[in-house]
Design a protein around this nucleic acid. Sequence first.
DNA 1: TTAATCTGTAATGTTTAGTATTACAGTGCA
DNA 2: TGCACTGTAATACTAAACATTACAGATTAA
Lengths: 137, 137
Amino acid sequence: MNSDYTLAIHSLTYLALQPDRMSTSDAISESAGVHPVRIRKVLSLLKKHGFIKSKEGTGGGFLFALDLSEVNLWDIYKITSEGALQPKCPESNEQCIVGANMQRVLCSIFLGAEEHMGEYLMGYTIKEVVDLVKKRL
Amino acid sequence: MNSDYTLAIHSLTYLALQPDRMSTSDAISESAGVHPVRIRKVLSLLKKHGFIKSKEGTGGGFLFALDLSEVNLWDIYKITSEGALQPKCPESNEQCIVGANMQRVLCSIFLGAEEHMGEYLMGYTIKEVVDLVKKRL
DNA sequence: TTAATCTGTAATGTTTAGTATTACAGTGCA
DNA sequence: TGCACTGTAATACTAAACATTACAGATTAA
């Protein structure tokens, strides 16, 4: 699982808890324990998809742009990690019936697996993640 | 997705197509396009779980030990890759409510995702993979 | 009983992917 | 004008994946 994915969830959850002021990449990076540049990279993806707004300059930062229950974990997965489940198939031997066909077979199976997982992830919105985080236990 | 997983599937499929003679790690590695030592490592795992037999020495190699429909892709996943979906959470800030709780929340969500995917993978046995490979298209 | 052919596994080296760091242009505020 | 941000590219570092080497032990066949 790509860790940009977890970073994106972490960031959005952070923003969700600061609904009335902008948060800087520095503040988020301190919460997540990674470098601010990474936060900006991940958030620039989320911005492109309209989940957040950003503002440059003094007093700038990031802000959640939608309702918390409009964004679910499958949406975020698709943006940050789609295809992460796909097998990394080394060049296999085309002379061999197994080598020649395995990649195709596995790709289609793993695509199905990803879609299947998607249905599960759709069940979690940022709102629910925020609630779980608040519960502390 | 751990590529030991795809290697295990590849190897088992290969063995399934050679039911009446032993296959060497060299032959399998040539089909899969990886180093024979890796094949032996992965297959030693599968052997521990009783999916295959092996024999050392001249004329030795590996052999499928069960019926093709007794082994499904979830079984293999559990052996080679369980936990691969778990997020790699960097140490986050315990002072922050998000940092302090995110790992716990994500672990439980991703555990569910893995189980959910498991139900899908259970639907594919090696027999079905072999059939798909034979179909060639 | 010796040589050849395998597995099993540890140790080491190499490559690649992930991540951090640095640098700096552009934007907006005070 | 100076400061505090985002945005992004370039570079450097680190860790994980993978290949390679090495060799002990098992098995067969000459």
